[in-house]
Nucleic acid binder design. Sequence first.
RNA 1: GCAGGGGUUCCCGAGUGGCCAAAGGGAUCAGACUGUAAAUCUGACGCGCAAGCUUCGGAGGUUCGAAUCCUCCCCCCUGCACCA
Length: 439
Amino acid sequence: MVLYMTSVDPQLLKELQGRGLVAQTTGGDALQEYLSGASRTLYSGFDPTADSLHIGHLVPLLALKRFQLAGHKPIALVGGATGLVGDPSFKAQERKLNTPEVVAEWTDRLKQQVSRFIDFECGSISAEVVNNLDWVGGMSVLDFLRDVGKHFSINNMINKESVKQRIDREGEGLSFTEFTYMLLQSLDFAELYQRHGCTLQIGGSDQWGNITSGIDLTRRLHGGQTFGLTMPLVTKADGTKFGKTESGTVWLDPAKTSPYAFYQFWLNTADADVYRFLRYFTFMSLAEIEQVEAEDREREGRPEAQRRLAEEMTRLVHGESGLTGAERITAALFEGDFLALDEGDLEQLKLDGLPFSLLERSALAGEPLTQLLVDAGMAAAGKQVKDALGREAVFINGSPKSAEDNMRVPECFAPEQALHGRFYICRLGKKKYHLFEVR
RNA sequence: GCAGGGGUUCCCGAGUGGCCAAAGGGAUCAGACUGUAAAUCUGACGCGCAAGCUUCGGAGGUUCGAAUCCUCCCCCCUGCACCA
């Protein structure tokens, strides 16, 4: 019997702290004791504010996995209800509401995404995915106001740091709708406590206020003791926002951010951030990360850490095949001579997710190169391409193009210049590549 | 509803009749230097290859000429009132 008892890793909390993943906890030492005592159930919420999660969601998502690996049962809550309302925490302004249909669709997609990261087939600690619309959707306003609202003090709520700036700030307001968000999230915790015996909520540090109020509500409604743990929001040393590139958010959905782009994102991590990110995001042991760091210090020049980070993260999110593809493209473009690639290689790069466009030769004449590259997504505006042309920063199959070539697109894509009769690799600047096929 | 304040290009924020496609900062892109870093310097940064076109909450109006003045409307903020 005892053989099948799930054993928990008593070092979990220490490990998380060592990784810098703990911002705040409730209960102090009691939490450490609680987590090492037995297998517990915990949850983290993800609101459907888009049709995919992005890398900002990885910290709590992977934390669920870390807890599961340590012997606890994770629940991923997808906010079909809370997504309809919008969390005001630390948001500078009121957000526009999405329609119920849209939110419902996004909820389904997030459910699927989230499911890839946690294990559903491991006995008593198998993960679950729940939707808070299941219990909020059918609740009447009056029940909500009497049973939930009654336990909240406005005096208390308006003093929460998370909404303070919205209340204090000139020019921005806070609607009742968003103000109510905290009650919904608190109710989630209380419900999960009752339904699943969930006693710990984790989230980003912006969720502290929502989590603690959920703990209060659970105690008031059900008399249960629960805990909260928040993780730091990922910041960058240079102060710019984490998770954005020029083309926008880095999504987990390969259809929105290709594994190659995803790989490149991590590869471009600043030195000042990279070891911290290895600890935040990967499952490499702390000892191993330290070793990488030590070796990088010894070696002159380029650190190995970024490559490791990119490798680990791409494998984690896009699997072994996604990683292989990303590495193939990277090697072809940045390390090798892509002019020497054979036809099969080029076809493979296309499949691997190298940005690609198919052009008709007959349509080339008369169109400026600027327009062509903007359409291909290589630049946001023609001006940028023009600027690059003026600096000899645009290359097609290795040959530099100048401002005079702008209106000579057919010559730029001359048949005799093509690789294997139809391929052209265009480079803009040092990092942006695009594969064109002209037929 | 009343009174007062306000809505400027991705963000912050100057600009109160021509010199404004609109200062400055941030973000972003490109170049140099590098390691597909950082820092720094340089250039770009409404759209357009260009001629040119379109902007300053919206619609009208005054004027040779408006982001700037007038009218109406919409939205936000602050206070008061309303909450029988």
